[in-house]
Simulated scan of single mutants.
Amino acid sequence: MLEVPLWLWGAFAATVVVSLAVDLLSHRTAHVIGFKEAAAWSALWVSLALIFGAVVFLVLGPTAGTEYTTAWLLEKSLSVDNLFVFAVIFAYFKVPREYQHRVLFFGVMGALVFRGIFLSLGVAVVSRFTAVLFAFAAILFWSTYKLLKDEEESFDPGRSFAVRMLRKIMPVRDEYAGAKFFVKEAGKRMATPLLAVVAAIEAADLVFAVDSVPAVLAVSDDAFIVYTSNAFAILGLRALYFMLAGLLDRFHYLSKGLAIILAFIGVKLILQASHKTISPAIPEIPSLISLAVIVVVLAGSVLLSLTRPPPADAAEQTDGQGDTPEKPSSPPAAGDS
Rank of each mutant, 00 (worst) to 15 (best):
residue 1 M to P: 03
residue 6 L to V: 04
residue 9 W to H: 06
residue 16 V to H: 05
residue 19 S to R: 04
residue 22 V to M: 06
residue 27 H to R: 05
residue 28 R to P: 00
residue 34 G to I: 01
residue 37 E to A: 12
residue 44 L to P: 08
residue 55 V to Y: 01
residue 58 L to F: 10
residue 60 L to D: 00
residue 64 A to D: 00
residue 64 A to F: 02
residue 73 L to S: 06
residue 79 S to N: 07
residue 87 A to H: 15
residue 91 A to T: 13
residue 96 P to V: 15
residue 100 Q to Y: 08
residue 101 H to C: 10
residue 107 G to W: 11
residue 111 A to Q: 12
residue 112 L to P: 02
residue 114 F to P: 03
residue 115 R to G: 09
residue 120 S to P: 12
residue 130 T to R: 15
residue 134 F to A: 08
residue 136 F to T: 06
residue 158 G to L: 04
residue 166 L to F: 08
residue 176 Y to D: 04
residue 178 G to V: 07
residue 180 K to H: 09
residue 185 E to Y: 01
residue 187 G to M: 00
residue 188 K to P: 00
residue 204 A to E: 13
residue 208 F to N: 09
residue 210 V to G: 09
residue 222 D to L: 10
residue 226 V to L: 14
residue 230 N to V: 12
residue 232 F to Y: 09
residue 249 D to N: 01
residue 259 A to W: 12
residue 266 G to W: 06
residue 268 K to V: 10
residue 268 K to C: 07
residue 271 L to G: 02
residue 271 L to Q: 03
residue 274 S to W: 09
residue 280 P to N: 02
residue 282 I to K: 07
residue 282 I to W: 08
residue 284 E to P: 00
residue 286 P to C: 11
residue 294 I to K: 02
residue 308 R to D: 12
residue 309 P to M: 02
residue 311 P to S: 10
residue 315 A to L: 05
residue 324 T to K: 04
residue 329 S to L: 02
residue 332 P to Y: 14
residue 333 A to D: 06
residue 335 G to R: 07
residue 337 S to L: 09
